[in-house]
Amino acid sequence: MTTTATYERPRVRKPIDWWRWAGRGFITFIMLFATLPMLWMILTSVKTQFAAMQYPPQWWPAEPTLNSYIKLLNPNDQIGQDFLRYFGNSFYVSFLTTVLGVVVAVPAAYAFSRFRFPGRTFLFFSVLVRNMFPAVVFLVPLFILMRWLGLVNTHGSLVLTYLTFGLPLSIWLLKGFYDNIPIQLEQAARIDGATRFQAFLLIVMPLSSPGIIATSIFSFIGAWNEYIYAYTFLSRDDQMTLPVGIQRFFTEFATDWPGLMAATFLMSVPVVVMFLVLQKYFVQALTEGAVKH
């Protein structure tokens, strides 16, 4: 004899997951907020001047043209010549800042991570505190200093200044990387016959390359985007970097919005590409230190 047990099956209606939908709505909103201005920049840059200056606006360029870009990138054109020179200046300054930054930050970060010398904490904090102060506070005295050093209107003044923006962050970031490399690796290397410096160079340096990449992106982007020092320290046209140089287009060709948008776009390309390729390191660098696991 068998009895069939009867079990109750509660009737459940799956509720609508409001949170999920709220999340989707929010993400849509924020995506539009973030991307539409960039989209409009690109759309404007491929319009003719006439098409750009219409009311109501032409939502989609009727006859797209690459004229603005061609003008900016043509070395035989006066505008193109200037633009390319600014581009080169920006690249030169950013590259130099990045390389020197790594050379200076690596040993300092290593020391802060590995050694316990008196005053370590104080020095470390004083380096960090640099980021607290706005550029403007340093502008006047630095201007005087650069004048005294004979560096006004040279790229050297910018590189020296940008170095100090980058250094605190670079040192902080790299220190985090060195903290995570087990000290036993260096000890093993030293027992295996390496000097302290060889252990650093052959074992630690290759392992910290993600950190070096991360800090390099930061220094580069920071230097590439910097405006106020370049604006103050440089007055010679042939020295200007892009963010400052672009302003000249704006004032001289006040109505050429497509040209300005194209210049802005071209100016953003290097950093955006760099960011997209090395996104992982960039994000890591950004959050390192703030999030302790």
Binding site: T35, M38, N225, Y227, P243, Q247, V272
Partner: peptide
Amino acid sequence: ALLMIPYVVSAVA
């Protein structure tokens, strides 16, 4: 990545 682009491009742009 798209959301981060405004943060990466310069304030001038």
